[in-house]
Deep mutational scan, measured.
Amino acid sequence: MKTQEELTEIVRDHFSDMGEAATLYVQVYESSLESLVGGVIFEDGRHYTFVYENEDLVYE
């Protein structure tokens, strides 16, 4: 099982292909040891929320 830090790095790496991230945040109260819930805000103003669970990243 991966730590939240490892899950955060996986998510950060995925979003790095989409541009320069200004902020990546984790909603600790919705996350667990198995999943990471949060969002990313890019330098150009785009904002996505995400759920990373079971090696699957879903974002909108």
Rank of each mutant, 00 (worst) to 15 (best):
residue 9 E to K: 13
residue 20 E to S: 12
residue 57 L to M: 07
residue 49 T to K: 10
residue 48 Y to S: 00
residue 45 G to T: 02
residue 59 Y to R: 01
residue 51 V to P: 01
residue 15 F to M: 04
residue 19 G to T: 05
residue 57 L to K: 01
residue 27 Q to Y: 14
residue 28 V to R: 07
residue 7 L to W: 06
residue 9 E to C: 12
residue 58 V to K: 13
residue 20 E to T: 14
residue 15 F to A: 02
residue 39 G to D: 07
residue 23 T to M: 12
residue 34 E to T: 09
residue 57 L to S: 02
residue 23 T to K: 09
residue 25 Y to W: 08
residue 54 N to D: 06
residue 22 A to R: 07
residue 45 G to S: 02
residue 37 V to L: 07
residue 38 G to V: 09
residue 35 S to C: 15
residue 48 Y to R: 00
residue 2 K to Y: 07
residue 6 E to A: 07
residue 29 Y to C: 11
residue 53 E to C: 12
residue 39 G to W: 15
residue 24 L to N: 01
residue 8 T to W: 12
residue 41 I to E: 02
residue 26 V to W: 06
residue 51 V to M: 06
residue 15 F to T: 02
residue 41 I to C: 12
residue 27 Q to P: 03
residue 27 Q to D: 13
residue 22 A to K: 12
residue 11 V to K: 00
residue 6 E to W: 09
residue 36 L to S: 01
residue 58 V to N: 07
residue 52 Y to V: 04
residue 27 Q to M: 13
residue 23 T to D: 08
residue 37 V to D: 00
residue 45 G to L: 03
residue 37 V to C: 12
residue 34 E to G: 15
residue 11 V to L: 07
residue 6 E to I: 08
residue 13 D to A: 15
residue 27 Q to F: 13
residue 28 V to C: 14
residue 25 Y to S: 04
residue 59 Y to I: 13
residue 46 R to T: 09
residue 50 F to Y: 04
residue 48 Y to P: 00
residue 25 Y to G: 03
residue 32 S to T: 11
residue 22 A to D: 07
residue 9 E to P: 01
residue 55 E to R: 09
residue 35 S to E: 03
residue 33 L to R: 12
residue 13 D to Y: 10
residue 40 V to A: 04
residue 33 L to Y: 10
residue 56 D to L: 15
residue 8 T to G: 03
residue 1 M to F: 13
residue 42 F to K: 00
residue 42 F to Y: 05
residue 9 E to F: 07
residue 34 E to A: 12
residue 25 Y to I: 09
residue 14 H to A: 11
residue 33 L to T: 14
residue 44 D to V: 04
residue 33 L to H: 10
residue 16 S to R: 12
residue 4 Q to K: 10
residue 9 E to V: 09
residue 30 E to V: 13
residue 3 T to V: 03
residue 31 S to N: 06
residue 19 G to C: 10
residue 35 S to H: 10
residue 21 A to I: 15
residue 28 V to H: 13
residue 19 G to Y: 06
residue 35 S to R: 15
residue 27 Q to E: 13
residue 7 L to Y: 02
residue 60 E to T: 12
residue 34 E to V: 09
residue 56 D to M: 15
residue 19 G to N: 05
residue 8 T to A: 10
residue 58 V to E: 06
residue 19 G to E: 03
residue 11 V to E: 03
residue 41 I to R: 04
residue 30 E to H: 11
residue 57 L to V: 06
residue 26 V to R: 00
residue 33 L to M: 11
residue 14 H to S: 06
residue 5 E to T: 07
residue 29 Y to P: 03
residue 51 V to S: 07
residue 46 R to E: 03
residue 33 L to S: 14
residue 48 Y to C: 08
residue 15 F to V: 02
residue 31 S to M: 10
residue 15 F to N: 01
residue 4 Q to G: 03
residue 17 D to L: 15
residue 57 L to A: 02
residue 21 A to P: 14
residue 15 F to I: 04
residue 21 A to E: 08
residue 8 T to F: 11
residue 50 F to R: 00
residue 57 L to C: 10
residue 38 G to K: 00
residue 8 T to H: 05
residue 59 Y to T: 05
residue 18 M to H: 06
residue 15 F to P: 02
residue 2 K to L: 10
residue 36 L to V: 07
residue 37 V to R: 13
residue 41 I to G: 00
residue 3 T to G: 05
residue 10 I to C: 11
residue 35 S to Y: 15
residue 60 E to S: 11
residue 21 A to G: 14
residue 23 T to Q: 10
residue 5 E to N: 07
residue 54 N to T: 04
residue 11 V to F: 05
residue 36 L to K: 00
residue 55 E to G: 15
residue 58 V to R: 14
residue 17 D to R: 14
residue 53 E to S: 13
residue 7 L to R: 01
residue 51 V to N: 03
residue 58 V to S: 10
residue 17 D to T: 15
